[in-house]
Computed example of a mutant assay.
Amino acid sequence: MDHIVTLQDPVTAFAPWMEPTDAELDAIEQEMPLILAEVDLVDAQIMTLDRTPSELDARRVRRARRRVLAARRDLANQGGADAPVVA
């Protein structure tokens, strides 16, 4: 019987050098408002997938889009050389 094994490294980081650095964690923390706003936008869009969007649904999506844009603006306006690039 042949055993099937993977040739790739495990996805979960086990070694200390595979953990995110403090700088990476700080960048994630700085971008967290944008990440949460984008999650809210995706949630609002998902709610409208299986039905005809009502006016309330349309407002919810527009509001979520505005929050994403505001979070991107705030992140871009933080400025400085250490500011992450928002695409």
Rank of each mutant, 00 (worst) to 15 (best):
A13M: 06
W17D: 15
A23G: 04
L49P: 06
P53H: 07
V85E: 08
D2C: 05
D57Q: 05
R62F: 01
T21H: 01
T21E: 03
R59Y: 09
A58D: 04
L49T: 15
W17H: 14
A58G: 04
L36K: 09
A70H: 06
L34A: 02
E24M: 10
M1F: 08
T12C: 00
D57S: 09
A71L: 02
A44N: 02
A71E: 00
I46K: 11
M18R: 14
L75F: 01
D9C: 06
D43S: 10
I35Y: 09
D57N: 11
V85T: 14
A15Y: 13
V5C: 07
Q30P: 00
A15L: 13
P16I: 05
G80W: 08
R66N: 15
V86F: 07
R63A: 14
T6W: 08
A71W: 00
Q45Y: 08
A76P: 02
P53M: 07
D57E: 12
L69M: 14
D9R: 14
L75G: 00
A81Y: 11
I46S: 10
H3C: 03
D57M: 08
M32E: 11
T52W: 01
A58F: 03
A15F: 12
T21I: 01
A70W: 01
A15T: 14
D40V: 04
A13H: 08
R66Q: 15
H3E: 12
I28Y: 10
V5R: 13
R62W: 01
V85N: 03
Q45G: 12
I28N: 03
E29G: 03
I35F: 09
T12D: 01
R59C: 02
L41Q: 01
G80Q: 10
Q78N: 09
L56T: 15
